[in-house]
Design a protein around this nucleic acid. Structure first.
Lengths: 197, 197
DNA sequence: CAGAAAACTGAATGACTATTCATTAGCGTA
DNA sequence: TACGCTAATGAATAGTCATTCAGTTTTCTG
């Protein structure tokens, strides 16, 4: 089978897995169920993934790829000040997650299954994503628009924490709000703070 | 058996569960293991808890009790302005979680196992905790020290999100930093914002 | 088109484990 | 001390499910 076709099948398997895992949770989703939804036999799964956990990790890698590429574009853009870049990253994060509820559920809930998986994930891609935000903070400090005494990495974690909480809250709420609509007030709060000037 | 003694035994069982679940994760911890660590037979667990999930929920309830009581004190205190209350809540949250790594692991990782459990938890106690933070924001707005155009509930979620991320990051990091040491810079950032005045 | 190679199948395997319950031990009381 | 009640025990039950692999089908190639 050609590589392109094999790749397409792998995508289909991942799509089926996203759907099942988002709806029933990782531990309650059986490999058999995923295979069934994708229309293949149980054994076929193991031609594409090492084991069940590898499916979860693969979902993460695929999604993170999208996040990173887009965020990198924002960071690399020329002639845009740090404040605008931060606003765009906030909007990107909330827009991408808000566009796919199943994926959002997996990101906000299922990836946090075990310390083991979480560590696995946070080491690689997550670090890169955090580094991107950090670099925007540093750019802002060089430009003199962000406070010089803020620790860039801590600040990046604060930004990420806020985005993460917004996403989790949205996933858990039944209401039909748009996640991206929180981008503006969140950016405003992060940039201007709570205290009256 | 007297109620007091029974209560003490229940506590012991919960302590054993915290230890095992923090180290091996909820799904990889068997009821038998918990019983073994507590020095009782497997069946005894079921005299104190409805089922395995009830153990997890009980751990949450016990810990949340502590959080709520302490946070409530801060909120109810007279003659303290909203900014100081917010600082104290931030410090409390990070201090309590930073004092017990096993409990922190369970809070930051294991409670998020499934949407089902997360929803269960976020409905009850979590809402109350968020309400406490919200009321501090509102107090600050009445006093004129916090910006009037910030949505109090959204702001509370932002604050919680930052605390949550700090805790998760600390749990995942191997370094021997003190979680509470982040209270000051975090409060500063939340209150003053990132932008130069 | 034949033969080889690559994909795929799905029943069987081998572990694992939450929960139950018949039985035993322990405690307080009269 | 004997009785009754509560607490505790732990082997047995009744599943569940990830993974394998011998056999089958499909695709490729010369």
């Amino acid at each position: 089978m050609r590589t392109a076709r094999k790749e397409a099948k792998r995508e289909r398997l991942l799509d089926a897995a996203v759907l099942e895992i988002a709806r029933h949770g990782y531990y309650r989703t059986t490999v058999s169920t995923i295979a069934g939804r994708a229309g293949v036999a149980d054994g076929t799964i193991y031609l594409y993934f090492k084991n069940k956990e590898d499916i979860l990790v693969s979902i993460f890698e695929r999604a993170m790829q999208l996040f990173s590429v887009q965020a990198q574009k924002i960071v690399d853009a020329r002639g845009i000040d740090a404040e605008e870049k931060l606003r765009r990253i906030v909007a990107l994060h909330l827009t991408l997650l808000g566009a796919d509820r199943d994926l959002a559920v997996i990101f906000q809930v299922e990836f946090r299954h075990t310390l083991h998986v979480l560590e696995l994930l946070s080491r690689s891609r997550m670090r890169d994503y955090l580094a991107l935000i950090t670099s925007v903070v540093e750019q802002g400090q060089r430009e003199g628009v962000f406070k010089a005494d803020a620790d860039p990495l801590l600040t990046a974690k604060v930004v990420f924490g806020v985005l993460d909480e917004m996403a989790t809250d949205w996933v858990l709420s039944r209401k039909n709000t748009k996640l991206a609509s929180r981008a503006e007030p969140v950016s405003k709060l992060l940039l201007g703070g709570l205290r009256v000037a």
